[in-house]
Write a protein that binds this DNA or RNA. Structure first.
Lengths: 245, 245
DNA sequence: AAGTGGTCTAGACCACAAC
DNA sequence: TTGTGGTCTAGACCACTTA
């Protein structure tokens, strides 16, 4: 007697399509059968088919395009871009990113003063609520790269420096500015994946089912005192990071 | 005249609940109103409410528990565990992970010989199809940590060594074994986020909407020749990685 | 027993894209 | 005009949890 198939119908449909996508029956970029066709093929109604497709969409295996069809994606191949993470110091005291990407601001960045939330206060080793200089940017670069970049500098770091009145520059010039204040810099990055909120998905132009990579970079001086914190939100598709150990 | 609300109803419901979760109206761990209650509140039918909840589940903001309710999650707080990435060399030639975690195998690991797929052949700088010694493990550690760990070593690296007959050990003993063969080791890690496949989600006990962090660690010798490759799949919640630049 | 989420039907009408 | 996916109704019945 064969094992009973207790799987719900929508999951059987999802499994069938997932297998087809992974084994090449439905190649990346090609349309899947229409919802109507699948409903007929499996003897179910369209909402049931759509429930299966919703599952595939949430896992990034499939992208539905209004009026055109549902297309297989290829979230398991190596990405197009590798970004080596690191900071190099030039002879003239300048700092550059190891990946050499030239970013431009997609929109007018927003500079404000915020109060340190708990999670950031922890990393910056300042009391919660401490005022932070905050700089918020949506950056773009060729070919089609995007990232959200937020910079936090505690006012206590800037006090009795020329940046008490004048806004400090954005990284990497920020590093040179901090070095000019007499600090020896080093950096630690904390990272984790996360699903985007709707506004983040929109800003980064992410389809459904694509996670983001959240990076918190802390700039420290020679006494391991945190001087600044940057938050990067990177699209999880089409991109990988490289670190040397 | 107010701007017309063109948002679909299910998205209005999702937005209402998301706002509530992010601003603390629905605290993490607490149940949301039942689907029935939301349907009544918004004047829609249950399938419409469920469509909104499905969206929140896919983004990891909410977890439904059968028979009990739908509960808010807190995917935006700092995780419980920080794993510093790095490899330290002991005086006696041993290697240890910087995070100091002691892993145990949750199931009997599987050792097989596979042919290098394109993506791995690229990183190992061997021809596609080259035979690889492969070791597949599901590892656990206190408190409740889990990771998938796969090790690949090209047979061409092992030829005319004692590991031609005998299986090479798993990392970190693998590194000592490679060092014993006369190599000076260094390491590069490539990483990206991804949504799990169903079997991965099950092995790592991930709820819906939680991405995984995929790490490819390449072990290289002093001539930058790749010797081995490890693939780590880590749960994206409750964990962050730390790298020093 | 009552309340919760899970699955499914059988439609309807709409918005968008391609021909 | 036709075919596609997007939204929504108004139910039904089931499986699971808690009391």
């Amino acid at each position: 007697m064969p094992a009973e198939n207790t799987q719900p119908k929508y999951r059987q449909i999802a499994d069938y399509l997932r297998r087809g996508i992974l084994d090449g029956t439905f190649p990346a970029g090609q349309p899947l059968p229409s919802e109507e066709a699948l409903a007929k093929q499996f003897g179910v109604t369209r909402p049931t088919v759509r429930q299966g497709l919703t599952e595939l969409r949430a896992s990034g295996l499939v992208e539905a395009i209004m009026g055109r069809g549902t297309f297989a994606r290829s979230p398991h191949s190596r990405p197009n871009v590798t970004r080596p993470r690191g900071i190099r110091r030039g002879k003239n005291g300048s700092f550059t990113e190891a990946d050499g990407i030239k970013w431009t601001e997609a929109e007018e960045p927003i500079a404000v003063r915020t109060d340190a939330p708990l999670a950031l206060a922890d990393l910056l080793r300042v009391p919660p609520g401490e005022p932070l200089y905050t700089y918020d940017a949506l950056q773009t670069a060729e070919p089609g790269l995007r990232q959200l970049h937020r910079t936090y500098v505690p006012f206590s770091i800037l006090v009795s420096t020329k940046y008490e009145e004048e806004a400090p520059p954005q990284a990497p010039q920020l590093y040179a500015a901090l070095a000019d204040l007499g600090h020896e810099l080093h950096f630690t990055e904390y990272l984790r994946p996360r699903m985007p909120l709707p506004d983040q998905a929109q800003a980064l132009r992410l389809p459904d089912g694509v996670p983001i990579l959240l990076i918190l970079r802390v700039t420290l001086n020679e006494h391991d005192k945190p001087l600044a914190l940057e938050e990067f939100q990177l699209p999880g598709d089409d991109l990988e990071l490289a670190y040397s150990l």
